[in-house]
Structures are given as structure tokens and as C-alpha cells.
């Protein structure tokens, strides 16, 4: 058996560097470049990371769902690793959204939690993604991958319907205020940089998890190969 080419960490390290630099830049901009909001004050600054995290979460989870579908149609270890890494990264950003969301809500709406449609959707997605991830651990050898992939691919269209439903539902609450718009050029630039910073951070986590899964899969294949050799040898030894 020829060993597969080594998985070099070059790409990951480069991403890590870019993400670190961008996050520092974004923090600087949030602190010193963007003006405090005229109405909401300093708390509005959560917005930059909160919204960027929400977008990153949606991107990660929807690509995780799509990749799961691809893995279901044409199974491939690489796609499986990509899909799992995407969903797990999405989970991390869901937690970030659900942490920064209530902080924002407390100041702007006066309550830690409101059933604001987007927050509700994020909570539902967090619960769903956690359950789907948990199934893999509980399924007997190897079957969890297909089950999780099936549920993850179903989750995307359902998530859209949840979105529609909570939007209509939340629309009946008059307390949803429009606030925290970004008006000045300084705010806009800060938001763009924060967006890039969070995206590169997401890409870094995704790559990290993907590499880990690939290495795990390779280790397992190697272990299998050794196991096969051992079985063959013990049989040959047993006969002579």
C-alpha cells in the first residue's frame, strides 16, 4: 500500500495568520474607528461581531447540509469530513450568536431574551445541529454517518420553513425594534473588516476540524491495514 501524500498544515497556518491579523484589526476598528451609536450607545458595537457570526453560522450550516446531501448521493470520506467540520463550526458560531444576542437584547430591548425571529431560528438550529452531531456517537459502527447525513440534508429546507414560520410568528410581536443601523463610513468599514475577520476565523476552524477528521480517517485506515496484516500473518504462522 502506498501511503497517501502527507496533509501539510501550510494552508491552515496561513489561514490562522490571516484570521489573527484580521481579528486584531477588527477589534481595533470596533474600539477606535467606529463611533458609538447615537441611540444605543456603546452596546451597539456588539453588532459587528454578532451579525458577522450569524452570517458565518448560516454559511457553515447550509454548506454542511449541502455537503451531507452530496455525501449521501456519492459517499466520500473527504466530503463527509468537510460536512462534519462545517456543521461543528456552525455550532460554534451559533453559540457565539446566542451569547452576543442576549447582551444586545438586554440593552436595546430591555430583556435578555426576546423571541425575535432570527434569534429563535438560531436557537432551533443549535438544538438541531447538536442532536444530529450526537447521533453519530450513538449509532452502531458506521451507520451514524448516513443517518446524520440524511437528517442534516433534511435540515436545510426545514430550517428555511422554520425561518418563514418564526418570521410570521415574531411579526405579531410589536416589540421588535429596528435599531443599530450603520450610518457612518467608519461604521461601515468596521463592519466590513469584522465580517472578513469572522469569515477567516470560521475558515480556520473549519480547516482545523477538517484536517483533524482526515487525519483520523487516515489513522483508522492505517490501523485497518495493520490489523489485516496481523490477521494474515497469524494465519500463515498458524498453518506452518
Amino acid at each position: 500500500m502506498t501511503p497517501p501524500p502527507p496533509l501539510r498544515p501550510t494552508g491552515f497556518l496561513a489561514l490562522l495568520g490571516v484570521a489573527t491579523a484580521l481579528i486584531c484589526a477588527a477589534l481595533y476598528c470596533v474600539a477606535f474607528v467606529a463611533e458609538p451609536d447615537a441611540v444605543l450607545g456603546i452596546v451597539q458595537k456588539i453588532f459587528y461581531f454578532h451579525v458577522a457570526s450569524a452570517i458565518a453560522m448560516m454559511l457553515c450550516l447550509s454548506s454542511g447540509s449541502l455537503l451531507s446531501l452530496v455525501d449521501l448521493v456519492a459517499p466520500s470520506e473527504r466530503v463527509d469530513a468537510l460536512a462534519r467540520a462545517a456543521i461543528e463550526t456552525g455550532l460554534i458560531f451559533a453559540v457565539m450568536v446566542l451569547t452576543s444576542g442576549p447582551l444586545w437584547a438586554r440593552k436595546s430591548w430591555g430583556a435578555w431574551w426576546t423571541w425575535e425571529p432570527r434569534l429563535t431560528l438560531t436557537l432551533m438550529l443549535l438544538l438541531l445541529a447538536t442532536a444530529v452531531t450526537g447521533i453519530r456517537a450513538m449509532a452502531p459502527d458506521g451507520t451514524g454517518r448516513k443517518i446524520a447525513a440524511a437528517l442534516a440534508s433534511l435540515a436545510a429546507p426545514v430550517a428555511y420553513l422554520i425561518h418563514v414560520a418564526v418570521q410570521k410568528w415574531g411579526g405579531t410581536h410589536p416589540m421588535v425594534l429596528k435599531g443599530g443601523g450603520i450610518q457612518s463610513p467608519g461604521m461601515q468599514w468596521t463592519f466590513r473588516i469584522a465580517l472578513l475577520a469572522i469569515f477567516s476565523f470560521a475558515a480556520t476552524l473549519w480547516t482545523l476540524r477538517y484536517r483533524q477528521r482526515r487525519l483520523e480517517q487516515r489513522l483508522l485506515n492505517l490501523q485497518l491495514e495493520i490489523s489485516a496484516q496481523t490477521v494474515r500473518r497469524s494465519r500463515d504462522g498458524g498453518l506452518t
Binding site: D141, L220, Q223, L224, S227, V231
Partner: peptide, 11 residues
């Protein structure tokens, strides 16, 4: 056939 990284059946 392998279970948890160990071959139960080989060749």
C-alpha cells in the same frame, strides 16, 4: 469486514 478499526474478516 472491520469493527472499530479491527478486522474481523480478512481476504
Amino acid at each position: 469486514w472491520a469493527v472499530e478499526g479491527r478486522f474481523v474478516l480478512v481476504d
